[in-house]
Amino acid sequence: MAADTKNRMIGAAIGLLQRHGLAAMTFSDVLAESGAARGAIYHHFPGGKQQLALEAARRHGEDVRGYLRELPAHTPREVVEAFLGSVRPVVQASAEGGGCAIAAVTVDGGAAIADQGGLCAVAAEAFAGWEGELAGKLAEAGMGSAQAAGLATLMIATLEGAHVLCRAAGSVAPFDRAAEALLSALPKVD
């Protein structure tokens, strides 16, 4: 039961980071969304908000990495198309006011808050893991390792940039344009 409470709190924190960012995430909101009792805060997260944000970012990073691991890898184009298709709903949520939980811990609340407790390191680890999964899929699909690594970085940069651009525009149009450009940059023969 205690592990379930902690998991619910981490899940609530991920959602709050996506919707409101680090600075606006409060324990009151985490408790309301998770249904946990106030005493659970100090039991599960004696390090406070920073510890909760760190564990939420780490979990979200691992969850996304697991999802990327499941993408098909027959051709590089298939990898890119599957990635773009799978992240489009996430970017749509950004256009409606959401965002990336991992990016939230790196940019929200200022550098002093973000660096405290290793949040930037956890975010860097998550992004590197996502890039590694995508590079592995692209290499598995026949792309050279250096080219695969570069394209994987471009894919993650496209996703993260789309969160910001689409939120500002209130539309997925910036993502759609970037996705089209990304696909057109691929070699025509896979």
Rank of each mutant, 00 (worst) to 15 (best):
R8N: 07
A57F: 05
Q50D: 14
Q18H: 08
A37W: 08
V30H: 00
A103M: 12
L165N: 01
A168F: 10
A40E: 04
G98K: 02
M155Q: 04
L16S: 02
M1R: 14
D190H: 14
P174M: 09
A37N: 13
S184H: 15
S34F: 03
P187N: 12
V164M: 11
A2G: 07
L71C: 08
G47P: 04
I113C: 04
L52A: 07
R19T: 11
D4Q: 14
R38L: 07
T75C: 07
R58Q: 14
G11A: 08
A121T: 14
S86Y: 05
L16Y: 01
L151Q: 00
V172G: 00
Q18S: 11
S28W: 04
I113M: 12
A56S: 09
H60C: 10
G161M: 06
P46A: 12
V107G: 04
G48S: 14
H20E: 13
E133W: 03
A185E: 08
Q147T: 12
G35Y: 11
R59K: 15
G150V: 03
G35Q: 11
R19F: 03
T158W: 01
Q116P: 02
T26Y: 11
A135D: 02
E70M: 11
M143P: 02
M1D: 09
L119C: 06
C120W: 06
A178Q: 04
A82N: 06
S171W: 03
G170Q: 07
L22P: 00
M1K: 13
E62D: 14
A56V: 09
A128R: 10
G144S: 14
A178I: 03
D115N: 15
A112H: 09
A13K: 01
G161I: 05
V87W: 01
I102G: 00
D108Y: 06
E140G: 11
G48N: 12
E96A: 15
G15R: 04
A36I: 03
F83M: 06
F127S: 00
G97W: 12
P174H: 08
R167W: 09
N7I: 05
G132Y: 06
L22I: 08
A12V: 03
A128V: 01
A173K: 15
L183N: 11
A152D: 01
G170W: 08
A152Q: 04
Q147I: 04
H60S: 11
I10E: 00
P76Q: 14
R59I: 05
F45S: 02
A24W: 07
S34G: 09
I14P: 00
A181H: 13
V91E: 00
S34H: 08
L182K: 06
D176W: 06
S171F: 06
A13Q: 01
G47S: 13
A168Q: 15
L134S: 01
K137Q: 09
D190N: 14
L54E: 00
P46R: 07
C166N: 07
C120I: 12
I113D: 02
E125A: 13
R8Y: 03
E125V: 06
A139G: 09
G129N: 10
A149V: 05
G136Q: 06
I156N: 00
A185C: 10
V90K: 15
E62N: 12
